[in-house]
């Protein structure tokens, strides 16, 4: 064991399902090693004992959807040396960014008995729209191996080994015959960032893009292929880009192109 001072870890939650932060607790085999290497200083899901900031590493889950949260994230940033946003909500606005394409007040009026109690923003936005983020860890949910890798890289003062390239690369490396080529199933893999290990194609399904767009996605070309060769209609195209990463800029644009017809 090396003799270094244990860095302090904090975990915060915004609009989200908790799945991503729970991935940390889900690291059954590694959790003791994590707890040995880092002081879990503020992580309500794990322990009620809270040590005050500043924190060396802060993980932020969830998107910003209320005026209160839009303020809260600034305070968190101020008390964090390194801030990593985790999951599709925190990195692109999440599934709740579907509201971005509609009038949120209409939803509120239908869903809540007392709409006047609800204070919400009309858009769900990623953390990086509000504060500086040191690293964005993608995924819905995140991969626990990648989360460990980020924590690990932080502890060892190195760059995390997290690919920004396509799911196709993972798919080919595991030897899966491409479902788009062999089965004519639409797959978002070519425009989606790796990280999941290309699970869906390995189970004969097209990729749903849980990990959001690659660095320079050519969604236009992919959509054209789906329409012209795989018989995918406009509605399905719009829905495909409006998944967990609907708010990611490239997917927002592409879905709007097809919504306009």
């Amino acid at each position: 064991m090396s003799l270094r001072k244990k860095p302090k870890l904090a975990v915060y939650k915004f609009a989200s399902c908790d799945g991503c932060q729970l991935s940390l607790l889900d690291c059954e085999d590694e959790i003791l090693a994590v707890a040995g290497a880092i002081e879990i200083a503020n992580f309500p899901e794990a322990s009620r004992a809270v040590t005050s900031g500043p924190y060396d590493l802060t993980l932020v889950e969830g998107s910003i959807t209320t005026p209160h949260d839009a303020e809260r994230i600034h305070a968190i940033r101020r008390s964090s040396k390194v801030l990593v946003s985790i999951g599709a909500c925190a990195t692109s606005g999440g599934i709740q960014a579907l509201r971005n394409f509609k009038d949120v007040n209409e939803f509120v009026s239908v869903v809540y008995a007392r709409p006047d109690y609800i204070e919400t923003l009309n858009k769900s936005t990623p953390i990086s729209d509000h504060v500086w983020v040191d690293f964005e860890l993608r995924g819905c949910p995140i991969s626990k191996a990648q989360l460990l890798e980020v924590v690990n890289a932080f502890l060892n003062n190195r760059k995390p080994n997290i690919s920004k390239e396509s799911v196709c690369m993972e798919c080919k490396m595991r030897g899966t015959p491409c479902v788009m080529v062999a089965n004519k199933d639409p797959c978002l893999g070519p425009v989606t960032q790796a990280g999941c290990g290309a699970i869906c194609p390995a189970y004969n399904r097209g990729c749903y893009s849980c990990f959001g767009p690659v660095a320079s996605p050519n969604a236009g070309s992919l959509s054209h292929w789906w329409e012209s060769k795989l018989g995918v209609d406009k509605d399905k195209l719009v829905r495909s880009y409006r998944g967990f990463n609907a708010g990611a800029e490239a997917f927002r644009q592409e879905s709007e192109i097809h919504e306009r017809g």
């Binding site: 040995g36 690990n152 890289a153 190195r158 196709c168 690369m169 893999g189 425009v191 690659v214 320079s216």
Partner: peptide, 25 residues
């Protein structure tokens, strides 16, 4: 799409990268 499929299926393409990993300690 810059997806790299062509290079990975090609029987002659040889490019590779190296990655260094550490354990938590």
């Amino acid at each position: 799409l810059s997806c790299a499929n062509c290079t990975l299926v090609c029987p002659t393409c040889f490019c590779h990268t190296v990655e260094d990993t550490t354990d938590l300690t």
